[in-house]
């Protein structure tokens, strides 16, 4: 069994913790092998937290605004996940966030009213269908409101390089799938919940089987050609947030190309406190 080298004090170097904020269980299944491969399992512990808010998606929840979203993320999502695993905020070296855009940046004109198939409609007000050029919604006004909240919150988070966790700040970056992960991977963006898990397992199996070559293939998106900020700028234009895009390639490239292979974010050395 390979042992890590010991430090002067006789202790082995402490593992670092990377926290991944995701939207649901299928994201954990799909992203775990990706991150495991990128960070390795010797020096980093991967911890997942689900972003739950009212109606499922925290960034689109009512009462979540750019002013309070950081605090909401900590109190509603991060805190109890760390507590369960006996991890302290001081252990975190990086926070990653993965979001589905769900067409949040598309103009209101692209939201069309439609009458859903009664066999699948359960009466939810935010019921909609994603298409590359438009969103079909039962209540277009609801979706337009949701998009306004979600896009404001996402714009705020995209501008952050560190996020507040308790009394500390931790390097932060956020990666999107447009309009959602299934769509980006060439699957049906409107898959029902139970299919999502199977699709996620299929994706995870491919990552495990094909390795780095498969991860490199995810970096080919046009929006990855600029930097992190440019990738967020470009996805906000026009109908881009409904088309299949993702800037996860930036993360993959950063970690695969860095000599250590793993490690924290850009600002790891500075200890930020508020």
């Amino acid at each position: 069994m390979a042992k890590r080298s010991k430090t002067v004090s006789g202790k082995r170097p402490r593992k670092t913790v990377v926290l991944a904020l995701v939207e649901g269980e299928s994201d954990k299944i799909a992203l775990y092998p990706v991150l495991r491969r990128l960070y390795g399992d010797e020096a980093t512990h991967l911890c997942f937290a689900t972003l739950y808010g009212e109606g499922g998606d925290l960034t689109a929840s009512a009462w979540v605004t750019p002013g309070n979203i950081e605090r909401r993320i900590y109190t509603q999502c991060i805190w109890y996940n760390l507590e369960q695993d006996h991890i302290y905020p001081k252990d975190l070296t990086e926070v990653l966030m993965f979001v589905d855009l769900d067409g949040a940046f598309c103009p209101d004109g692209a939201i069309h009213a439609y009458v859903p198939d009664p066999a699948v409609y359960h009466g939810t007000r935010n019921c909609c269908e994603y298409h590359p050029t438009h969103i079909n919604a039962v209540f277009p006004g609801e979706i337009a409101d949701r998009n306004r909240r979600k896009s404001a919150n996402l714009r705020h988070l995209a501008g952050l390089s560190r996020i507040r966790v308790d009394s500390r700040t931790v390097p932060f970056s956020m990666y999107y799938f447009s309009c959602n992960r299934e769509h980006f991977l060439g699957q049906d963006p409107n898959s029902p919940g139970r299919d999502k898990t199977d699709l996620a397992h299929g994706f995870a199996d491919r990552v495990t089987a094909e390795g780095d070559a498969f991860l490199r293939s995810l970096c080919g998106d046009a929006f990855c050609s600029g930097g992190y900020e440019a990738s967020w700028q470009r996805v906000q234009e026009g109908l881009s947030s409904l088309e299949p895009h993702s800037n996860i390639g930036l993360l993959i490239r950063r970690l695969l190309d860095s000599p250590a292979g793993a490690g924290g974010g850009e600002g790891e050395e500075e200890e930020g406190t508020l």
């Binding site: 082995r12 402490r14 299944i29 092998p33 512990h45 997942f48 006996h86 991890i87 495990t208």
Partner: peptide, 29 residues
């Protein structure tokens, strides 16, 4: 003890690592 399982700071490993996500993938397979 719980933290040691995650962080492995002691001279000996007290727990060969497992992960919920890997267990889920294995159940699925």
């Amino acid at each position: 003890y719980f933290r040691e399982i995650l962080f492995r700071e002691q001279d000996e490993t007290v727990y060969a690592a497992t992960s919920t996500e890997e267990i889920a993938a294995a159940f699925h397979r």
